[in-house]
C-alpha cells in the first residue's frame, strides 16, 4: 500500500469528509511525525508502536570508489519498535 492508496482508502471510509481534507490530514500526520523525530522527540502510538532515535557512533568509513578513508561523525537514525497489538496481529496471520 502506498501513500496515495492509503489516502484513497481513508477517503472511502470517511466519506463525509472531502478527499482534499483526507489528503491534507495524512500529509500533516506524516509531517508532524517527521518533525517530531527531527527535533529529537519520540513518537508513542499505543497498539501500533513507538519511534525513537538510535545513536550511531562516529566511525572511519571508506569511499568505495577510491578506497580513501573518510571520517564519519556520529549520528542519530530513526528506529521503530512495533507495539503489542501490531506484533500479535501480524503474527496471527502467519500462524
Amino acid at each position: 500500500m502506498t501513500k496515495s492508496e492509503l489516502i484513497e482508502r481513508l477517503a472511502d471510509k470517511l466519506d463525509h469528509l472531502s478527499a482534499k481534507d483526507v489528503e491534507k490530514s495524512i500529509k500533516e500526520i506524516l509531517e508532524l511525525m517527521v518533525g517530531s523525530l527531527a527535533k529529537g522527540d519520540r513518537i508513542e502510538i499505543r497498539g501500533f508502536g513507538s519511534f525513537s532515535l538510535h545513536y550511531r557512533a562516529p566511525r572511519v568509513g571508506r569511499n568505495p570508489k577510491t578506497g580513501e578513508s573518510v571520517e564519519l561523525s556520529g549520528k542519530y537514525v530513526p528506529h521503530f519498535k512495533p507495539g503489542k497489538e501490531l506484533r500479535e496481529r501480524v503474527n496471527l496471520s502467519a500462524a
Binding site: L37, A38, G40, V77
Partner: peptide
C-alpha cells in the same frame, strides 16, 4: 527524507 531530517535536526 526522514533520515536526513533526523540527522540534520539532531546534529552534534
Amino acid at each position: 527524507k526522514l533520515k536526513s531530517r533526523v540527522e540534520d535536526g539532531n546534529a552534534e
